[in-house]
Lab assay of single mutants.
Amino acid sequence: EDYYQILGVPRNASQKEIKKAYYQLAKKYHPDTNKDDPKAKEKFSQLAEAYEVLSDEVKRKQYDA
């Protein structure tokens, strides 16, 4: 799945936009606030993985290549 789609940001998003999108979605899908939703944990880990790659310039360049 596309990391940009997961975070809901365009491919040319700035680091600030990526961070903002991640924090909004992380708050929304955090397992502690969605105890009754088994998919929230999965969504949250996808968000974390996408953010880890896109927030790191080197990893992001490799991902975009």
Rank of each mutant, 00 (worst) to 15 (best):
E1S: 11
E1M: 14
D2R: 03
D2T: 08
Y3V: 03
Y3L: 12
Q5I: 10
Q5V: 11
I6C: 06
I6K: 05
L7D: 00
G8F: 05
G8C: 09
V9G: 00
V9D: 00
P10E: 12
R11V: 08
N12Q: 14
N12G: 07
S14I: 04
S14W: 03
Q15C: 07
K16H: 13
K16C: 10
E17S: 09
I18P: 00
I18E: 00
I18R: 00
K20W: 14
K20F: 10
A21Q: 08
Y22L: 02
Y22R: 01
Y23N: 14
Y23A: 14
Q24M: 13
L25F: 05
A26C: 09
A26K: 08
A26I: 10
A26R: 15
K27W: 09
K27Y: 11
K27R: 11
K27N: 13
K28Y: 09
K28M: 10
Y29C: 05
H30I: 06
H30N: 13
P31Y: 10
P31C: 08
P31V: 07
P31G: 08
D32K: 05
D32G: 10
N34S: 09
K35R: 13
D36H: 10
D36E: 12
P38G: 06
P38T: 11
P38K: 07
K39C: 10
K39N: 13
K39Q: 08
K39H: 15
K39I: 14
A40M: 11
K41P: 10
E42N: 06
F44W: 13
F44P: 01
S45T: 15
Q46W: 08
L47V: 12
L47E: 02
L47Y: 05
L47K: 01
L47S: 03
A48C: 10
A48S: 13
E49T: 13
A50S: 04
Y51F: 11
Y51A: 03
E52N: 11
V53T: 15
V53W: 06
L54N: 00
S55N: 06
S55W: 04
S55Q: 07
S55L: 05
D56S: 04
D56N: 06
D56K: 02
D56R: 01
E57A: 10
E57T: 14
E57I: 11
K59Q: 09
K59T: 06
K59G: 04
K59N: 05
R60G: 01
K61P: 04
K61C: 08
K61Q: 13
K61L: 10
Y63M: 02
D64V: 02
